[in-house]
Amino acid sequence: MGRPSTPLLSVDLIARATLRIIDTEGSDAVTMGRVATALGVHTSSLYNHVRNRAALVEEVRTLVTETIDSSAFHTFPWHEAVVRWARSYRAAFARHPRSVPLLMSVPVRAPRVLSMYEDFTVALRRDGWPDEEIVVVLTAVESFILGSVLDMTGPPAMFDPAAHAAEFPAFTEVIATLESSATGVPTTDRAFELGLDALIRGLRAQRRALPQTARRTDRITRDGTRRKDARDHGEHRSR
């Protein structure tokens, strides 16, 4: 029996084809029909593997985020873990920056991504952040990371005031100074590290300003459920 003329479909094959379209044509190009054409199959064949476009987006999200390392949340103080996670997060999306608009359009349901959010949540709870602030902190950090990723997609010289130097002399001078003092490190990378440091400093200051809360530790009981143990804790360990 000969091989089929087209490769056997799978969720992974469909997701990778979709990601290639995103990388080369942008998020707006992603339709079920376009993906089917790229794979050389009928559109209806895709629905044997993915329910709809939203489900396909979640499979792409899993691919893009598969290299993000959230293990630091298990061993480091929350602020050090966030720094390590943020760098890993940015590096993963830097490989596929054009995926950001598409992934931002669909609620996160992918277990791979929810797993790292669980790590984030447990770490911040452990160090005393109140539950009502944790998603706010997460959103602030992610917004900063993804903004930096989008910044990386722009031209190397984003600012060009030369034609209006007389009107905007101060800004023109600092751009010239930046260009003449190039360190070899891209401005986007320097800006990311500067912004991340400022963000973490601000979050730590906010954490210290919050009322003292009980440190919570997840414990697994014999029946597999989680029990919250608490003991007095501020942020003294991670200041």
Rank of each mutant, 00 (worst) to 15 (best):
R190T: 02
G195M: 03
R201L: 13
P156C: 00
D189G: 02
W129D: 01
S115R: 15
L146T: 02
D127L: 01
R126K: 12
A123N: 15
T187I: 08
A198K: 15
T213N: 11
L114P: 07
D127V: 05
L199P: 06
L146M: 14
R216E: 14
F171V: 15
G184R: 00
P186N: 07
P186R: 09
T188V: 08
M116E: 07
A214M: 05
A123F: 08
R201S: 14
R226V: 15
R215G: 15
A157D: 06
S115A: 14
D160P: 02
G202F: 07
P169M: 09
I200C: 06
L114H: 00
A209Q: 10
G147W: 06
T183S: 13
V135W: 12
D151S: 04
A165K: 13
T121M: 06
P130F: 09
R208I: 12
A182F: 01
A165Q: 12
T177K: 11
F168G: 05
E173N: 08
I200N: 03
P211D: 14
F120W: 10
V185N: 02
R226Q: 11
R226I: 14
L138A: 14
P211G: 12
T153K: 07
E142H: 03
P161L: 06
S148C: 01
G195K: 00
V141N: 01
H164F: 11
I145R: 01
E173G: 05
E179A: 14
V149S: 06
I134V: 15
H164Y: 13
A176E: 15
P169W: 07
A166Y: 06
A140C: 09
S180F: 01
F144I: 00
T188H: 02
T225I: 02
L210H: 13
G202H: 05
R204T: 08
L124K: 00
K228Q: 07
R222Q: 10
P211C: 15
R216Q: 12
A198L: 15
P186W: 02
A163V: 07
R226S: 14
T139D: 15
D151M: 04
A166H: 09
V113C: 05
V113L: 07
A140Y: 04
D119H: 08
A214F: 04
Q206P: 01
A163L: 05
R208S: 10
T139E: 15
L150N: 00
D119E: 10
A157N: 03
L210F: 13
A163Y: 06
Y117A: 04
M116C: 05
S143E: 09
T183Q: 06
H164V: 08
L178H: 01
T172V: 02
A182E: 03
G184Y: 00
R219K: 13
D189P: 05
K228N: 04
R215T: 13
M116D: 08
F171E: 14
L146C: 07
D127H: 13
D223L: 05
G147F: 05
R204H: 08
R207N: 05
S115E: 12
T213S: 12
R215S: 12
